[in-house]
Design a protein around this nucleic acid. Structure first.
Lengths: 218, 218
DNA sequence: TTTTATTTTTAAGCATGCTTAAATTATTTA
DNA sequence: TAAATAATTTAAGCATGCTTAAAAATAAAA
């Protein structure tokens, strides 16, 4: 019950690193809602612990140890999400926050038991891939944000961003869920909103919403 | 993720208060493996927060608020234990430690969902009663420690102490579990050890062990 | 290239929860 | 009841993880 903060920092670095495996301390502060000073503090500790390569004013990069630790945290989080959703019956908009707490407080043994019970799921309730015990991460099918679909195009929801409970609650009301088909009827240039059909119903959705729903590319 | 220590202190006070609802700071330090000074520190905080009545060098007593908080922690702990044991299939000697972590990291909503799923269990895997949402605590049937049974007596196991994983692992090897029948064949005065029969097998057990297994009184 | 703006770090400080050592109060025992 | 013992509290200090304000380094714009 000691490394909650460290674990959160490592997760954020892992999930937000760019294609070169780098991240700005800025981003970390934003995602964790702490000051930049707090980030600098923690970077020093993580560096001393051997989890990141860090040089002041320069880049931040996970070491192999850090990558392993972080990937395991992501694994723990997503397995809890599947468990809460499928076994406990908790709605998908609630599982993220609950898993955020549980991920720090469970043994690897428990996580592995849950995984076995769930028959080794590859994706969490939001469509994010679950790293295996060995560190493999299932590939996501090719996808693009709903916001980039053109008028007349349609496709299946393959992933949604899980950053905000209210966002997820809202799209649930529209009938949007994984594997659901969505068709774009009309796009309005001036505010980038769009009219879409879900389960036969027509909805007007904002660009911000559409940016956070991802459609499988056929 | 803030009140882990406070929650632990309240639980310990709740579970170890005497019949007048009092407890010595001594006991708390022992149960939590911290110094007496740490206990004094925390008592001041708990008092300031309105969870206990506390006067230096005098007694320690839970307020109504403190009692409610503590009882709910015990509820959370024991519901997790049942869940881990029955749904996840974790052996009883492991659930206590795991629940010790999870109890601080779950919403009341999750606890209530688990409880519903389990169909409102009254006892945890060690035979301890689970307080209801409303704060009612199921009555334990009358029982006494196995160590107090006389030669020739027998009865069913109704509760075991869960303080030590190794103890539980050991008695599992002897076939001791809830509802199991135990007969006392012989008692040795010099070290208070006893010979007992469990599932047709004869075992020699120490007084210390026998003090932590409780037998239903007919 | 120099100025301006942004990002990052340092410095000082705070709350939490722990430690050991010394002092104080309560309880036993002679 | 007085002395010895046990329990409890105070004092000083430490690590963690955060804050704001000021300083330093980097990146962007003129």
């Amino acid at each position: 019950m000691k490394n909650i903060s460290k674990e959160d920092y490592l997760s954020v670095i892992f999930k937000n690193q760019n294609s070169n495996g780098e991240i700005k301390s800025n981003i970390i502060a934003g995602k964790l809602s702490v000051s930049n000073a707090a980030v600098t503090d923690m970077l020093k500790k993580l560096s001393k612990d051997g989890y990141i390569i860090y040089e002041r004013y320069k880049g931040i990069k996970l070491t192999v140890d850090g990558e392993n630790y972080a990937r395991n945290m992501v694994r723990r989080h997503r397995i809890w999400e599947v468990f809460l959703n499928q076994i406990v019956g908790m709605p998908w908009e609630k599982v993220h926050e609950e898993a955020n707490k549980l991920e720090h407080s469970s043994s690897d043994d428990l996580i592995n038991r849950l995984e076995t019970m769930l028959d080794y799921p590859e994706y969490d309730p939001h469509g994010d891939p679950i790293p295996t015990k060995e560190g493999k991460i299932p590939k996501l099918k090719k996808h693009r944000p709903l916001s980039e679909l053109k008028e007349g195009e349609s496709g299946k929801v393959i992933r949604v961003n899980d950053f905000d409970e209210k966002f997820l609650g809202y799209i649930s009301e529209l009938g949007i869920k994984l594997q659901e088909k969505i068709s774009v009827k009309q796009k309005r240039a001036f505010d980038k909103s769009m009219e879409v059909v879900v389960k036969g119903k027509l909805w007007n959705i904002s660009n911000k919403l559409a940016q956070n729903v991802f459609i499988e590319v056929k």
